[in-house]
Design a protein around this nucleic acid. Sequence first.
RNA 1: GCAGGGGUAGCCAAGCUUGGCCAAAGGCGCAAGGCUUAGGACCUUGUCCCGAAGGGGUCCGUGCGUUCAAAUCGCACCCCCUGCACCA
Length: 960
Amino acid sequence: MTNRSADVEAKWQERWYSVGINESEADSRPKFMMIFAYPGVTGYLHVGHMRGYTYVDAITRYLRMIGLNVLFPVGTHATGNGAISLANRIRSRDPGTIEYLLANGCPEEEIANLGDPVKVVDFFNEIYVTQYWKRFGFLADWRRFTCTIYPDYQKFIQWQFRKLKDGGLLVQKPYFAPACVECGPVAVDASETDLQKGGRAETVEYSLLKFKCEDMFLVAATLRPETVYGQTNFWVNPDVEYVKVAKDGETWVISRPSYEKMRYQMDGLTVIGTIHGKKLVGKKCTAPVIHREIPVLPASFCNPDVGTGLVTSVPSDAPDDWIALRMLQENDVLLIEYGLRPEDVREIRPIPIIDSKGWGPLPAVEITKRMGISDIADSRLEEAKKIIYRDGFHTGRMNENCGEYAGMPVEKAKEMIRDFMISSGEAEIFYDLSEEVICRCGRPVVIRRVPDQWFIDYSNAELTKNSKDQAESMHILPSEYHTNIQGVLDWFRERACVRQGNWLGTRFPFDDKWIIEAISDSTLYPIYYLVSKYFNEDKLKLENLTEVFFDHVFLDIGDPADVSITTGVEIELLKRIRSDVEYWYPLDINLGGKEHMTVHFPAFLMNHVGVLPQKYWPKGIFVNWYIIGKLGKISKSKGGAEPIPGAAEHFGVDPMRLYYTHIASPFADVEWDEEAVENYKGRIERISKTVEELKALPEGVEIASIDNWLLSRISSRVKTVRECMKEFDLRTMANEIYFEMLSDIKWYMRRGGGNGNVAGEVLDVWIRLMAPITPHCAEEIWEGMNRDRFVSLADFPTPVESGIRLEIEEAEEYLKNVITDINEILRVTEISPKRICLYTSPNWKQRIFENGLQMARENRLSIPGITKTTMSDPILKKRGKDAADFARKVAEGLMKRSRSDMDRLARSFDEFRYLAESSAFIAKEIGCEVKVYSEDDPDAYDPQSKAKTSVPRRPAIFVE
RNA sequence: GCAGGGGUAGCCAAGCUUGGCCAAAGGCGCAAGGCUUAGGACCUUGUCCCGAAGGGGUCCGUGCGUUCAAAUCGCACCCCCUGCACCA
């Protein structure tokens, strides 16, 4: 099936690109450089992604038309293991993956080629550019396309890191990060890009407490080091075999699974034997900090997979401990079986240590009683634990049993006690994941210590200060984010910037074993678009892209002649690139989704501030919200959303562009709704039809008042559009052009407007207004009007100030209100009208009204005041009480009005004349005879004396 | 938990910064009428409740409060979404 709209789209895209109107070169005009944060190429995109991209194209098209020299470059991000894992799945013919590829239109024969990650990246790069961006008619400068795994881009990234190091912004220190035991570092996050399961896991920090027991240390893991003062006994699982591990000359007893995990965090651990839990029961051990001997007791709830499988017991604040203790105390048979003396165990009492809001001294005892928990197997213990932990942490204070920490908030004591125990050698730190995490490869993910990790030091005080100052001066949308980014920049700390493992990306220039990670290599890149063009055109070679080269073109270091010799780059080309940078930079807007607010945008800003001179620091950020699926977020990795090329074919590109820009504020999530897109399609068709009607109107007709109304209206709308676009408010722009203007034109025709010359003038404006959002259909109409060149290159309309006649617009509003009033009367009374009489207010009423209005606008309106003014006017005074009463009524009415109403009411026109001229129209609308009188017309037909109720701007109405 | 963003008529969605024609734009849906051979096309009108005269009543998550006046400002509460760092 041939699709006409697809043909039209292809035709114009072909013409634009063949002439190169999308290509940008420096010249004497003011410039504007805008990008969207490039996407990661880890699969197909869906219709939701096009929202932000469309904003950039529409905004830059607008800015071109108002006379700016615009640069809109695009690229892609391929760093990471997304492409690798996709290639792996394709190689192994994973059915889900194959189905996903085919569903998105990947040719069957292509699949065999996609087993190689680099091929995957190339494949998707091609799709992004041709099937998404060109297909949507973007005027991006394709010559500058780049991708993070291209060798030239990598030269640039290496330069960036050299500069960060020069600036003292790279630091090295140990780090604990999730890693697959096989593949190396992985991201643990809800999207589970790297994972098979466990995306919701969090990294938890345990304190390992060491309990001296004979020649061993029993090592318990706890999340609550501050509770050491409440320790009463030690728990061991009698059914588990523990391992003895040599650690720095000590012998530690821990569970085997915990040893397997701990190996990745501590050096020199060796298993030297095993010991059964049962054997430990009944021994005594020395608790850290309090240095008391406590008994080792049996407990089935000690899970070898959690922590170390050994637990210190704090029955005052740990519901598990309390219930386990109580059950044991009541079970003599069991106690004797373990060789424990029942009276010793029964002697154990919880020790109160924390006072928290809403709880007595022993919260664990209290909550289990309240919830009726009496068995250690009760699943509600988990919830009880959470509640006590939460309340204790946030509202608790250590009590008098806690030595020097007495009185201290738990939040603070926790850290201090932990640090104290570490320094005294009684504790160490151990990280674990809160649930099981499995890598895509099927092996477990653990927390691994990386001893020599490199970080970018975003906590650097000067960098933070400069970035915050810059953010303050930037144009950041939405404005809430302009405020909030200050806090984000403060909160931004050191960030690991390199990693090892199976990973696409750039080699760290100071140590080859590292690869620069995915966020750090995508922060400064907009400036690289100014170089990539020359590399893509083969004017630069890889070996030219040295530190000296980048220092020169980006930082203006060195004399061109010297640099030319050192780098082998033609001196003219060097000068050219240098001046391009000087012209195009800084970046004016970086647009990206809301997920970027806490990571990418601050990193983007801080890298610019850290590496480049102040004049190149970015000027703006635009954050857009998502198009979401009916069942939550449309996910790139999970698929399920309509593929972009299919949607473009089905709905047409312009309807989709209009949908994105108009459906809602950019700062709100919107549910993808095909029916809505269909409606936008219908609207564009309606506009096309209206255009044809306007073109068919005869020329050389005399100008009527409705013509002036339309011209005024159009200019007012152009003015609104230009005003709102200062804030890149595409939604208001779309609303004015595709909704309000259409209804203006419809009203014009309904009112009998039909002047071909006026229509031509209006059309000329209207089409140009449409060019940024629906460029294909605008071009098509433009061509149909025999205009030269492209409407995309035309000037954006300017309002004709002299044509804006607000009093005419106001009069038309008045007419609409009169018709509304008549309709309401007809509806309520259910009269089938034979005749309608309208009575406009007489001069004396108007005079009072004008006086009142003037007083109100000067903020001096009062009832006594207006009465006085009225009575001091000899003409009005003759009206006596009527005038005074009317004056009071006017004043009461006006005092409720807003400033803008006052302005509107001040636009005066002759009501009687206007209604009289429009009576034929009203008659046609209502379907009966319409007579217009002035209230004081002695010959007026007024059988029910309605006329006297007239008020300025509110004629009296009589229906019969 | 911490931080940010939200809750508006049947649905979607403006309005909230700068309180006042706000019963609250616009779109969708629905209803009636028109136009049509027909239409899922288009045009008009209506779409919280009451009303035989353009009026009145109630309403913007819930509850208080400030004010002559609150969808808009303040406080408290309930519910939803996002981010929290090697996914960009």
